[in-house]
Design a protein around this nucleic acid. Structure first.
Length: 668
DNA sequence: GACTAACGTTTTTTT
DNA sequence: AACGTTAGTC
């Protein structure tokens, strides 16, 4: 059997988890305890026990996690079995479910998924229309409140703030009129279909008899309710997570789901994975001593299998400039002195704003680096525009994408005309597209605008006919459409410099190519839009492919590991963040630091500054209160000056090394 | 309708 | 410091 070897390499608790196949199971997997290996072994074991692969469902939070799990499982079981399994995110599971059953809730089958930037666009319009501009209500804030309500199971009409509730109702109506749903609706409606329609529920319970949920500490209460609908008696459900790594509470994640799991599924088998294969004893002891300060957790102590290790350094810095220079210099020194790879180093920070100085310091020394996270590919303007054109080719009656590109590139249909068209469509109860097509409406406009609209209508319907009637390849039609409207030159004109010009050009090329791939696989335009709405990263440029030291936020670092970790800005107000103190979520900040510490395999350095630039102004800082909570058994306190003085003697050597390095770096 | 200048804002992030 | 938004001008 393929996974005999894998099973033998598991420890006792991991084997127990693999063997516990029936009924509810909760695997509490501490950081670095071989969670993924255990889960994939457990799934492989299901197949050995003759569970049909098609009945196995594994749910993750991100597309990345889903594809990683698919890959890991693929390496253990037959190709056929791996292909028959369902490994996907909560949201894509719901899309599948709703494409089959949303008509039961009065939506049309071809509903579209509203991307976040479009949600913001809709909300901004509504705020203007409802006269909230002078009350300085932010669209994002309203959307956050709506999202929280939906995930808690509260009707959006019952939002605390009256104005918010009004906006929320108008927002839902708007989506409904567009036959569109947002991300939360996917879960909300899927749960509703399952709950209200026993035939659908039974159908899905028969299809998926074995359900696994990864990163369970990140589930919110809506996802929990969905899971309850999905899994019926005898509850062959396995959840995997670590309450100590729950860092998405601000996004609605309920640690209670993991803390009170037995409330949702009866008599679960609880298995703790506590043997850590990642970090040294020094790192783990320090991490354990910190997390102990949180109350109301599932007690868990990480045990090192590697032992010993170098002490953890806590370095006091005069300011953030010195902090950045110190780390960059050390990375350079370590690389040469101990033959490290750039990929061995990671610098972790609380807020994205802290990365700038670190980036500059690395760039000065020609140290290659990769920024993880930053801007999501699908949120880029040019991508949203191109996708809007694709959406129009599917259905021009969709107002959101229509309004988005109505004057992008500029074609003489300005804001004033757009408002007239929107008003007309609302009065007559039709889509904006229908208004634009109506000669009675266009005749009320000036000649210039009328001509522009006629050209636009001809452009879109012409392209749509080529796809629908002439059955041409949509990818070709799109490419030619973009050439015709001179989209690329228009975008390039708006760029500040060559590198931006190149990046945007590449992005456009890349989205066109992925449409071509999608069509080549025989899939529909609609599913291309679904995938794009649910994806955040471009598939082809994985983190692993980019070389260099890693710059990453603490949040984004979860699940990753690095031999050498620098964790910067351990200052009161940053970590814990100001906001957490007022909101009473200091525990979550402690978990955030815990996540950061447990990323380190060998060497860990924590730094804090006396002065930090904040919004272009120097601000004084106090050391984080978390520093005092760390047990000092493996801790060494030093200062920037101490280290500089020690190194003074070997300065000449350092200079030699860094110039050597510059020579090497330039060769790249 | 398009362009420029002053203005205000700034945790974490996925789907 | 740097970004996006908005108001004012041509």
């Amino acid at each position: 059997m393929a996974n005999d070897f894998a099973f033998e390499s598991l420890n006792h608790a991991q084997r127990e988890a693999v063997a516990a196949q029936d009924g509810p199971v909760m695997i509490l997997a501490g950081a670095g305890t071989g969670k993924t290996r255990t889960v994939t072994c457990r799934i492989a074991h299901m197949l050995e026990r003759k569970v049909p692969a098609s009945e196995i469902l594994a749910v993750t939070f991100t597309n990345k996690a889903a594809s990683e799990m698919k890959e890991r499982i693929g390496g253990m079981v037959s190709k056929k079995a791996a292909a028959e399994m369902t490994v996907c995110t909560f949201h894509s599971l719901c899309v599948r479910l709703l494409r089959g059953g949303i008509h039961k809730l009065g939506y049309k089958q071809n509903f579209s998924i509203t991307a976040y930037s479009d949600q913001v666009g809709i909300m901004k319009q509504l705020i203007v229309r409802k006269g909230g501009t002078d009350e300085k209500v932010k669209a994002e804030t309203v959307l956050t409140e709506i999202s929280k309500a939906k995930n808690k199971g509260i009707d959006v009409a019952d939002l605390q703030d009256d104005f918010f509730a009004q906006l929320a109702v108008a927002y839902q109506n708007e989506l409904r009129a567009q036959n569109a749903v947002d991300f939360d609706d996917l879960l909300l409606l899927a749960e509703q279909v399952l709950r209200e329609h026993s035939d659908v529920r039974d159908h899905f319970r028969k299809i998926y008899t074995r359900v696994t949920v990864d990163e369970f500490q990140d589930t919110n209460s809506l996802q929990m309710r969905l899971l309850q609908q999905l899994v019926g008696s005898p509850y062959h459900v396995c959840v995997v997570g670590d309450d100590d790594q729950s860092i998405y509470g601000w996004r609605g994640a309920e640690v209670a789901n993991i803390l009170e799991f037995e409330r949702f599924f009866p008599n679960p088998k609880v298995i703790r994975l506590e043997e850590n294969y990642r970090s040294t004893e020094a790192v783990l002891h320090t991490a354990n001593s910190l997390i102990k300060h949180n109350l109301g957790r599932r007690e868990k102590v990480l045990r090192s299998t590697r032992g010993g290790g170098d002490n953890i350094r806590i370095v006091a810095m005069p300011g953030d400039d010195e902090e950045a220079d110190f780390i960059a210099d050390e990375i350079l020194g370590e690389k040469t002195a101990h033959g490290r790879q750039w990929e061995d180093f990671a610098i972790l920070f609380r807020t994205n704003g802290q990365s700038r100085k670190l980036e500059l310091a690395l760039r000065d020394r020609k140290i290659p680096y990769r920024m993880v996270g930053a801007q999501s590919f699908y949120d880029r303007r040019e991508i949203r525009d191109v996708l809007a054109y694709v959406a129009l080719l599917v259905s021009p009656d969709n107002d959101v994408p229509l309004l988005r590109i109505l004057n992008a590139p500029n074609r003489g249909i300005g804001q004033a005309t757009a408002v007239l068209a929107t008003d007309d469509s609302r009065e007559k109860g039709r889509s904006v597209w229908q208004s634009l097509c109506d000669p009675f409406f266009t005749s009320t406009l000036g000649g210039k605008a009328r001509g522009a609209i006629e050209d636009f209508v001809a452009l879109i319907s012409g392209a749509k006919n080529r796809i629908d009637i002439a059955k041409e390849n949509p990818a070709d039609v799109l490419s030619e459409l973009l050439v015709e409207i001179e989209y690329l030159p228009w975008i390039e004109r708006g760029c500040k410099n060559d590198s931006e010009r190149q990046q945007r050009g590449e992005a456009i090329h890349s989205i066109k190519e992925s449409l071509r791939d999608h069509i080549a696989k025989g899939k529909k335009l609609q599913s291309f839009l679904d995938d794009s709405a649910l994806a955040s990263e471009r598939e082809d440029d994985d983190l692993e492919k980019k070389k260099g030291a890693t710059l990453i936020t603490l949040h984004a670092s979860k699940g990753l590991e690095f031999p050498i970790v620098y964790l910067v800005g351990l200052e009161e107000g940053y970590l814990p963040h100001f906001r957490s103190i007022t909101e009473g979520t200091k525990d979550e900040e402690r978990r955030l630091l815990y996540v950061g510490i447990t990323r380190a395999q060998e060497l860990l350095t924590l730094t804090y500054c006396s002065v930090r630039m904040k919004w272009g102004q120097k601000t004084g800082c106090q050391p984080s209160s978390f520093i005092g909570e760390l047990d000092d058994k493996y801790i060494e306190h030093t200062t920037f000056d101490d280290i500089q003085n020690v190194e003074m003697s070997s300065d000449d050597l350092d200079d030699f090394f860094s110039s050597m390095n510059n020579i090497f770096a330039e060769e790249d």
